[in-house]
Design a protein around this nucleic acid. Structure first.
Lengths: 123, 123
DNA sequence: ATTACTGTATTATTTACTTAATACAATAAT
DNA sequence: ATTATTGTATTAAGTAAATAATACAGTAAT
């Protein structure tokens, strides 16, 4: 089963985003070893080079680091992970609100719509 | 002043998104004439062909139509515009909620964070 | 020592997006 | 009638992303 569905955005960035989420959500825990580039590439249905590119990006952000030959690991810095989680959440909220307001929804309307969506999900 | 800031997403899709918002938010009204492809291209700081590509996309969705030589116009079908507004909003909400939940936020937490953000904006 | 698995690097090809430079037909304005 | 502006089409070139096919060096396991 390959990962990516969306189009119009580059694949490697979608991978970065996905793995970021898996880290901050705790699916990957601090210090965890993650699958090899080759494995991940097969799993995602993309070229190893594309996966490697995503890894370099995650490394640049400090979320993962590679141990030359033994593999690649999630950072052990839990504080950093929580910080990034907060940052990502704030960014999501801001972008969401900005788009909704550009469509002409007020703050109160947005909250109401969210609540309604939550109700519907319960059913 | 050129429009586009984001990277990692194709320019013409960002233009489509932006103009969609301008239509459903009422900045462009039903029947309004919109600037020529050339004008918009200059304004956005992109190539006319790129702008044209965005226009074709908007046309495919029925939001605008071109009158061979007199210009391009917003659809007069207000119902369609409202429908698309609702659809876009629903899509935004769903994507936002999905991402937040993937990060481990509960529905209640999301609402609380939203409220907090709204409070901060007032100040 | 050999094997197998790491991350990493290199080169080539393909594809989609973007820019560039024109051109044309239709029509509104003058 | 002429001019300017419209949408549209075409051809070429440049760029970035993605794929493909390898290769290499380090090391843990055997």
């Amino acid at each position: 089963m390959s990962w990516i569905l969306d189009s119009g955005r580059s694949i490697y960035l979608q991978i970065v985003e996905r793995i970021e989420l898996e880290i901050v959500s705790g699916k990957y825990k601090p210090g965890d070893k993650i699958p090899s580039v080759r494995e991940l590439a097969v799993e995602a249905g993309v070229n190893p080079n594309t996966m490697q590119k995503a890894m370099v990006e995650l490394e640049r952000d400090g979320l993962v680091h590679s141990e030359r030959t033994s593999g690649r690991f999630i950072t052990e810095d839990e504080t950093m992970i929580m910080e990034i989680r907060k940052d990502l959440a704030r960014k999501q909220i801001e972008e969401f609100m900005e788009r909704m307001k550009k469509m002409g929804f007020s703050g109160e309307e947005i909250v109401t719509l969210l609540r309604k969506t939550l109700e519907e999900e319960k059913a």
